[in-house]
Design a protein around this nucleic acid. Structure first.
Lengths: 147, 147
DNA sequence: TACTTCTTTATAATCATTATAATTAGTTTA
DNA sequence: TAAACTAATTATAATGATTATAAAGAAGTA
């Protein structure tokens, strides 16, 4: 499954004239296999063993390349580090307020909201961002124990 | 209208034991009257004339105080500066990809999405964040002209 | 193989935000 | 009202994520 994603991604990149370097291959592979929506630094640390000389700038540069190619989405959170998500099919995120864990869930797109927003404001709508916040089952259990 | 918001906000603060200083009064007043969802630095600059000795830290400190009191919402955008929004009734934001302008629009809350997310993931849901992105009428007009 | 261009690396710079310590000002209570 | 207590402000330094820069290295091409 993830091998297919990786192959498709490499094809997409090549077609848009982006060279496939070992670093790019490794970053993509890690992003696809990872379930943790990693930060740039987490990617950097994860690949340290295989690429002891890789620079953090390389990670950032390539995440931007992937984002521009539409392969990767950047999830931003103010001053804290951005997290990066390999784009598969459309999904949303639910984020634990306690431990910060990000879990995917599926929901039909909110075209209706986009239409209303467009109608009311006169904007030409491109996209939207939706995140749900709450407490994950594990953290909820811990809170109960602590009582 | 905005005077009522301000008075209510001051009462809320006092009730939770927060001292009302001239700086806090001015920051709140500016936030309420402003339509631009300002950054901390924009607030700082806007009040420079009245408070030449005010520190940026004061702006940040108080925005946090207001956020903790539920009076203000912080809108975060990765490495770029956060923007701050005085909380009135529930509304969402639509943001222009070209010029960055943020416009409010109203839409019934998305309880149904929250329920689905909660059901699928087992999270206890607290809140959600929704933003729509697009091109504002002014920028759309400019693009046409440029052609 | 030689050339051109893109990529990586190492490092320094930037910028938003937070921490610290000293000073100042609200608030409380006698 | 004045003293005392505590919180808030200021000025400044520190932090941490991200980006810019310049030199060195590697990929693609003639």
């Amino acid at each position: 499954m993830s091998e297919i994603f990786l192959k498709d991604a490499l094809v997409t990149l090549k077609e848009s004239g982006v060279r496939i370097t070992p670093q790019r291959h490794a970053i993509l592979e890690f992003l696809i296999s990872s379930e943790i929506h990693p930060t740039a630094d987490e990617i950097y640390k994860a690949l340290e063993a295989d690429f002891p000389n890789m620079s953090v700038a390389t990670v950032y540069n390539n995440l931007r390349v992937f984002r521009n190619a539409g392969l990767v989405k950047e999830l931003t959170y103010g001053d804290a580090s951005s997290r990066f998500d390999f784009v598969t099919h459309d999904h949303y995120h639910i984020i634990c307020d306690v431990c910060g864990k990000i879990v995917d869930f599926h929901h039909p797109g909110l075209e209706e909201v986009e239409h209303l927003a467009s109608h009311v404001t006169g904007f030409k709508v491109n996209s939207h961002r939706l995140e749900v916040y709450g407490t994950c089952p594990e953290c909820a259990a811990n809170v109960k124990k602590a009582k």
